[in-house]
Amino acid sequence: MTPRQVFTSYPGGIRLRLRVQPKSRREGPQGFVAEPDGEWALKFGINAAPEDGKANAAILALLAKRLKVAKTAISVAAGAKDRRKLIDIRGHEGELAAALAAWLAPLCADSTEQES
């Protein structure tokens, strides 16, 4: 599994596919999940409850902090009220992909070991 499989590029940034677990004990990436359409999503835990947009705000804040972009550069493109979300992150694609790959490197190593 590679981080490249959970995001796509678009003009001006990347689009990240998430499968969110609200009220999770551990925040952040937790693995990779196969989606019904054959694509992959990043399983993503967040402490916040899915009410009044709190979980979405927490996701955007955590992504902004870890990828070192402004909160205003990140938005929910689809799935605002669903566990399956598409998140748009505006910025230089290469830099965003590198930051995402560095953050997900431990998960990628784990999934490679599990496949062996």
Rank of each mutant, 00 (worst) to 15 (best):
A48W: 01
A97R: 02
K85H: 09
G31A: 11
K23V: 13
G94E: 10
G94Q: 04
Q21H: 10
A34H: 14
G12F: 08
L18G: 04
L96Y: 08
A70N: 12
G12A: 02
W103G: 07
G38P: 08
W103L: 12
F7A: 01
R17I: 07
I74L: 12
L67K: 12
A57G: 07
A48C: 04
A102L: 04
V6M: 10
I59E: 06
Q21L: 15
E95R: 14
K43R: 14
V76P: 05
G12M: 14
V69H: 05
G13L: 06
G45L: 09
A34P: 03
G13Q: 10
Q5I: 09
R19K: 06
P22H: 07
E51M: 03
G79C: 09
R84D: 04
R25A: 13
L86E: 08
I46S: 00
L96C: 12
L62N: 11
G13C: 12
V6A: 05
G94H: 12
H92T: 14
G38K: 01
L16Y: 10
A99E: 03
L63A: 10
K65L: 08
D82I: 04
V6H: 15
I74A: 09
K85Y: 03
K68D: 12
I87L: 06
Y10V: 00
I89T: 07
G94K: 15
